[in-house]
């Protein structure tokens, strides 16, 4: 990486590529997307460190695959639209140096 490349921000999709994963095909988080339409502030879109919640035309596109299992969306969601648990069987993020 050159000096200028060092100054380039890495996109979240690429940041998540630096991690090790064993993603469970069964989602550990479920979203009641109907509630999102009526959510005025949508804090999940800014507060999820993995960018799992993306706003598209007033609704939310959610993907659990890059979830870092922090629990932030569970507490910031004002509409209780999120059913949240940890993955089972050791699946999900596999930290090595954190």
């Amino acid at each position: 990486m050159s000096e200028t490349a060092g100054l380039q921000r890495i996109r979240v999709e690429d940041l998540l590529q630096r991690d090790s994963w064993d993603v469970d095909p069964r989602p550990h988080i479920r979203l009641n997307a109907e509630k999102c339409a009526g959510c005025p502030t949508k804090p999940c879109t800014r507060m999820c460190p993995a960018g799992c919640y993306v706003e598209a035309g007033g609704s939310i596109v959610f993907s659990y695959e890059g979830c870092l299992e922090c629990g932030t969306c569970r507490v910031v969601c004002p509409m209780e639209a999120i059913e949240w648990d940890y993955p089972v069987s050791g699946r999900g993020i596999q930290y090595r140096t954190a």
């Binding site: 100054l7 380039q8 890495i10 940041l15 922090c70």
Partner: peptide
């Protein structure tokens, strides 16, 4: 933060090997 003008020289040319989050 990583690309902050006053800070990035400390880890310039480094490889980001892990990204993590926790409450």
């Amino acid at each position: 933060l990583r690309t902050h003008p006053a800070l990035h020289r400390y880890w310039a040319d480094g490889d980001v090997v892990e990204y993590a989050a926790k409450l």
